[in-house]
């Protein structure tokens, strides 16, 4: 399908405007990460990079135990991402396909449990976590990360699955598939678009999650979002903004990579259309 030139031009104009609003501060952040500390703040602002330096990145690379930080992030993110893709889709299926009192209450509980700010509840949770020996462990962190992803993912999957006609699985069931089999063979493949979207969202959420690791890690587990703590301050009052922005850019890279890889899976309209009755 070829698009009329005029429409394409209008779209490009919008893209450029949106891109500018988004990228202009981001550009300043990225530029900062390549700038020497003394050149960071100038008035009027230097937009062109001068005296580029890799010092900020070098400082991060030299930071104690970078590999520990990487290892922690990869392990915890991968585990909670895997759990969330499968278990939340399964739960979404349960919520979408069965409507009775109990299930509806469970659904409401999952939604409403996100509505409680964590500032106070973290204290009893911490006490409980320590008593169970889960504080500062990979499994403890993974459970908390996964729990964090549950409400949104589950509700999204449920909404999505409720738009898939049940006749599809019923057909599979008539062909002799079990209920679980009908889910894995018929429903899961249809979830690709929402799965791609949620994976991107959840990946970024895990990567940037700050509060949970801040509270629940001390020495055994390290994650990238806390890497900035290991950058020594220049002095008591000055943030190492160069190194901080470098850390931010470094964390952005995997996120962008993830988006680029999964972006094409978001497109699923045609396939969905053919099954909607």
């Amino acid at each position: 399908m070829k698009m009329p030139k005029r429409k394409s031009a209008v779209l490009w104009i919008f893209t450029i405007i949106v891109g500018f609003i988004i990228m202009w501060p981001v550009y300043w952040i990225v530029k900062s990460s390549f700038t020497k500390q003394i050149d960071l703040f100038k008035s009027p602002i230097e937009y062109m990079p001068v005296n580029m330096t890799l010092d900020n990145y070098r400082q991060l690379m030299d930071a104690a135990g970078l590999t520990d930080y990487l290892k922690g992030t990869i392990l915890i993110t991968a585990a909670s991402l895997f759990l969330s893709v499968f278990l939340c889709a399964l739960a979404g299926y349960g919520f979408a396909r069965c409507q009775n009192k109990g299930i509806n209450i469970a659904f409401a509980f999952i939604m409403f449990s996100t509505m409680i700010p964590g500032t106070v509840t973290v204290i009893p949770l911490m006490t409980m976590w320590r008593r169970m020996g889960l504080s500062d462990t990979f499994s403890g962190l993974t459970i908390l990360y996964f729990s964090l992803l549950i409400p949104f993912s589950t509700v999204m999957y449920a909404g999505f699955i409720s738009q898939i006609p049940p006749s599809l699985e019923e057909a599979a069931r008539i062909d002799g598939a079990t209920m679980f089999g009908a889910f894995t063979k018929v429903i899961l493949p249809l979830l690709k678009p929402i799965m791609a979207t949620l994976s991107i969202i959840n990946f970024i959420t895990c990567l940037n999650e700050f509060f949970i690791p801040l509270m629940f890690t001390t020495k055994n587990v390290k994650v990238m979002s806390l890497l900035m703590s290991s950058i020594p301050k220049l002095n008591q009052y000055q943030m190492p903004w160069g190194a901080i922005s470098a850390a931010g850019c470094l964390m952005l890279l995997p996120a962008i990579l993830f988006i680029v890889i999964f972006e094409k899976n978001i497109m699923g309209g045609l396939m969905m259309g053919s099954i909607k009755q």
Binding site: V122, P124, R130, L214, L226, M228, S229, I244
Partner: peptide, 17 residues
């Protein structure tokens, strides 16, 4: 943590628990 606010938050919460 890098920010003073986070340090206070963490230290207080850990000690209180």
């Amino acid at each position: 943590p890098l920010l003073y606010a986070d340090t206070v938050n963490k230290a207080t919460t850990m000690l209180a628990s």
